[in-house]
Each structure stands twice: as structure tokens, then as C-alpha cells.
């Protein structure tokens, strides 16, 4: 399962980089979205995959018996999703405004500040 996830994450990163290198700004945003999703999946996988064992402590116990999924990794992903949601929402607004001002969505036309 971990190998499969690793391949999937690799595909996501590759697709993200490919999209970011395209000339269209819209594809740039899609690339950024894929990248943040890839990073989230990577945290999930790197923290160790556990199937069907929620990290719940039984009544009367002090510790979890046996292996359990890592709740901290999930908390990290949740935080990262919220952050990337906010940042990407901002990026979409920015690109919308930029396309209006510059009158194009071609990155090659945006060389005024280089």
C-alpha cells in the first residue's frame, strides 16, 4: 500500500510541476493545487499507514492497546488543507485580477518586471 501511495504522490508532484511550467496562469493554479494535495498525501503516507484502527482509548484504559493510526499526522494535514485553501483562494482572486489588468493569461506576456 505504501508503495502504491508513493507512486501516486510522485505522479501528483510530476503533474503539478508540469502544469506549473505551462504558459497559462490558470494551469499554474491547477499545478499549485496538485502540489499542495501531493504534500498532504505525503505527510499522510510518511507518518505510517494503518488501516481500520482509529486512535481511540477504550474506557477504563490509560493507553491504546496495539497499533493505531497516527492522529497527529491527520491534524497536520487538516491544518495544511485549511491553510492551502485560504492561500489558493487568494491566488485565484489574484490571478483573476491579474488577467483583467494584463489582458492575457499567457505567462510569456508578463515580462514587464524582469
Amino acid at each position: 500500500m505504501t508503495t502504491l501511495m508513493a507512486i501516486l504522490i510522485g505522479c501528483l508532484y510530476a503533474a503539478a510541476i508540469y502544469m506549473m511550467l505551462r504558459r497559462s496562469v490558470v494551469k499554474l493554479v491547477i499545478g499549485l493545487i496538485l502540489l499542495s494535495n501531493g504534500a498532504n498525501l505525503l505527510i499522510f503516507t510518511a507518518a505510517g499507514l494503518q488501516r481500520g484502527v482509529p486512535p481511540l482509548i477504550d474506557k477504563g484504559q490509560q493507553m491504546i492497546a496495539g497499533a493505531a493510526a497516527d492522529p497527529l499526522a491527520q491534524a497536520l494535514i487538516l491544518t495544511a488543507i485549511v491553510i492551502s485553501f485560504g492561500v489558493l483562494a487568494f491566488a485565484v482572486v489574484l490571478i483573476h485580477r491579474a488577467c483583467e489588468v494584463v489582458q492575457t493569461d499567457d505567462m510569456n506576456e508578463m515580462k514587464g518586471t524582469d
Partner: peptide
Amino acid sequence: MEGAIKYVTLNLLSSALFLTAIGLLYG
């Protein structure tokens, strides 16, 4: 706008790499 697109893109790329590094380190 032109400057901001470059700034936003490269900084988000850097954040994604940072997050990747944190994930691997946590692993």
C-alpha cells in the same frame, strides 16, 4: 500584478517543499 504572480508562485512552491520536508522528517 506581474510581480505578484511570480512572488506568489515561487513562495507557494517553497511552502509545498517545506511541507514535504516536514512530512518526511516526521516520518
